[in-house]
Design a protein around this nucleic acid. Sequence first.
RNA 1: UCCCCGAUAGCUCAAUUGGUAGAGCGAGCGGCUGUUAACCGCUAGGUUAUAGGUUCGAGUCCUAUUCGGGGAGCCA
Length: 463
Amino acid sequence: MQRLKVAQALKSTAVEIEVDVRGWIRTKRESKQGFAFLELNDGSSLANLQVVIEGTVTGFAEHNKHLTTGSAVRIIGVLKESPAAGQKVEVHATSIELYGTADAEKYPLQKKRHSFEFLREIAHLRPRTNTFGAIFRVRNALCNSIHNFFQSRGFVYVNSPIITTSDAEGAGAMFQVTTLDAAKPPMVDGHIDYSQDFFGKRASLTVSGQLEGEIFATSLGDCYTFGPTFRAENSNTTRHLAEFWMIEPEMPFYELTDNMDLAESFIRTIVAEVLATCPEDMAFFNERIDTTILAKLRNIIDNDFLRLSYTEAVEILMTCGEKFEYSVKWGTDLQSEHERYLTEKKFGKPIILFDYPREIKSFYMRVNEDGRTVRAMDVLVPGVGEIIGGSQREERLDVLISRMQECGLKPEDYWWYVDLRRYGSVPHSGFGLGLERVMLLLTGMTNIRDVIPFPRTPKNADF
RNA sequence: UCCCCGAUAGCUCAAUUGGUAGAGCGAGCGGCUGUUAACCGCUAGGUUAUAGGUUCGAGUCCUAUUCGGGGAGCCA
């Protein structure tokens, strides 16, 4: 007798073998004549395993009234071809063992569709549903695929720090990390004395691993970070989280074009790989969440991304005749509605915008020969919007320092970052990609809180 | 943080100009069936988010708060 996961049992070509399967009951269909069908799920696949139980089976009479939705059981039985439609194989039980019961009057998950808002309030139970099971299996496949992509190209996985004392690049408001007593912190000259804090200075949770990534790119070569990232912005949208996972590759000797090539290849490769690894879950999303999702993803895999300079994009937006709430003019950042028009309406495919005005971008982006633009890029995809932001980094010491001053930053605060330009500086590039935004793209889900196991957003950090 | 909308049974929703709360699903019980979002019958289940106000009377109107949804800003 072998213990099989539900996914293995469903795929088994061997029948008439004795098996041991364990999992949670999704539903029971019962005859009072002593005949019942259980749908068993253990998370290994979307599909359930049907268990057929004759009234005489060991343990059935004893446990029957507790074989309810959500209860956990061990079934020993024989795997057989199913005579009825709906499944290829099923298990004919010979004994039933009950692990844990789930009071049917209290168990919140029912054999019916629940709203995502309701399921978010029971985040500890929602992975037991079809949709969230599929989401988190796909999320796992996606993470694996991301590592595969970089590892197979010789990139080094770097663990950038989560606690940091550098203000990063002003990527967003930061969460402070402190062991000082918030009620009565030590004061000196009317200010909090951080020299008495755990790290001897003010510390925060990271908003980006990019600067550390650049250290490793200019030593170990092509590398990437992949870890949690924190932004204390008070943003309440379907696309933002206070804690999210970010992937940040950084490559020496890459110019912006190489960076764009990598970003495009990256997106297309991981989408294709997840489609290939999770066909059942992806079919489910196409059926229940967004009936066009498979076609959309096909479109992304099969077609080159369109590359458009910021200046060209502004021209298109100004002459397209479309009415926008915010007017478009060169030198201001594009609004969501503009990006959406370009990627969804005008071109209907992913777009890479590049060479943005220097005034609206960060200090570390390489200044172009024209002096008014920098080598920045954003990848926009239909339905999600901005999914990647990246740039070629400024490698010239003098230009970097003057850009820092221009942006109101003190070069001495970033002395180690500036050192990278002082010793063996090379052209290099990188980008950042939000894992949860890729999840939105892949699954067709529309709220980012539903593609991360335990969402952290303003006023919400339960579970 | 700003704008708009919402909160009624375990869940999803209904309730006429302000007139005293209803359905489907789920649950319990019974029936029936190689069933499969099973099916049929019966039963239970509500301080209408919270606090105040207007009114003879408030689920319905007003104010505040909390939470949720959509959009915007910020970004990934």
